[in-house]
């Protein structure tokens, strides 16, 4: 099958597009899919759901995949809280509940890397209810980095200082308890 967009390269990715409930199929080469993908993936409510796109990229969208291989039925990966399976997440491009993030944690990291330009860890705002301790933890992590550097630079006095700071922050985290 040849790519419908450039009509040059062979189509290796396959999408379903639903407009007003009517499904159309789209067959693209890797290059065109990437271009279109960027176009569609980030629009708020795209014609091509990100699920279709993920499905294509991971070759999980079985309905008309040209992939000949038959995978053995694996144990179904599922969120215990909302019963959404990983396959459903991929098809819909949407999680069912907050716990899905935990349930699909291992599968999620590469997906996030792809969608978020390599980023997988939040560094922004923190809800007030867990704010205090988490901000302290971030500060501790940063100090640990500086501690390593100080040791590497053989600046032992500075290192000792930083270690004291870390200890006092760690005590604070313990005393504030927090939920995490």
């Amino acid at each position: 099958m040849i790519c419908q967009s450039c009509k040059e390269r062979p189509a290796s990715l396959h999408f379903t597009k639903a407009i007003n409930g009517e499904k159309t199929e789209l067959h693209l080469c890797e290059k065109c899919a990437q271009e279109k993908g960027e176009q569609y993936m980030f629009s708020e409510h795209p014609d091509f759901s990100i699920g279709n796109l993920l499905g294509g990229l991971f070759n999980l969208n079985t309905p008309f995949s040209s992939q000949p291989a038959q995978y053995p039925q694996q144990k179904v990966l599922k969120c215990d809280s909302c019963q959404t399976t990983f396959q459903q997440f991929v098809n819909r491009g949407k999680f069912g509940c907050a716990h899905c993030y935990e349930a699909f944690q291992d599968q999620l990291t590469p997906i996030l890397k792809r969608l978020q330009n390599g980023n997988t860890v939040h560094t922004g705002k923190i809800p007030a209810r867990i704010g205090g301790t988490l901000y302290l933890k971030r500060e501790i992590a940063e100090l640990r980095g500086r501690l390593q550097q100080a040791i590497a630079d053989e600046e032992f006095e500075l290192a000792a200082d930083i270690r004291d700071q870390i200890r006092s922050l760690e005590k604070k985290v313990l005393s504030e308890g927090g939920e995490s």
Binding site: I50, F95, A98, I111, Q116, T120, H122, I130
Partner: peptide, 22 residues
């Protein structure tokens, strides 16, 4: 009580919004 994870930030329906949700 917001759905929030220390690693992933504010948890959203779609992974294209996770983190800051901004």
């Amino acid at each position: 009580k917001y759905a929030f994870d220390e690693q992933r930030g504010y948890l959203t329906s779609c992974p294209t919004n996770v983190g800051t949700g901004l």
